[in-house]
C-alpha cells in the first residue's frame, strides 16, 4: 500500500483519538469554544483535508490505469 495513503489515513485518528489525553482541558477558550471542543472541531477539518488528498491520489491512479 502507498505509504502516503497510510499516513493520510492515520493522521485524523491520531488527531481525534490519540491526542485526547493531552487536550482534555477547558482553557484556553479558542474561537469561543472550550479547548477540547475546539480541538475536535479542528479534527473535522484535518479529516476533511486528509480525505480530500486521498481522493485526489485515488482518482489520479484510476485515470492512469
Amino acid at each position: 500500500m502507498n505509504p502516503v495513503k497510510v499516513i493520510l489515513t492515520l493522521i485524523p485518528f491520531i488527531w481525534t483519538i490519540g491526542m485526547i489525553p493531552f487536550v482534555n482541558r477547558v482553557k484556553p477558550i479558542v474561537f469561543g469554544l472550550p479547548f477540547l471542543a475546539f480541538w475536535l472541531i479542528a479534527g473535522i477539518f484535518v479529516a476533511f483535508i486528509c480525505i480530500k488528498c486521498l481522493y485526489h491520489i485515488d482518482s489520479k491512479n484510476n485515470q492512469d490505469s
Binding site: 471542543a37 479534527g43 473535522i44 479529516a47
Partner: peptide, 13 residues
C-alpha cells in the same frame, strides 16, 4: 458530549 463532534469524520474515513 464533545465525543459526538469526533466520531463522524473518522467514520467517513
Amino acid at each position: 458530549t464533545f465525543y459526538i463532534l469526533g466520531y463522524g469524520a473518522l467514520a467517513y474515513l
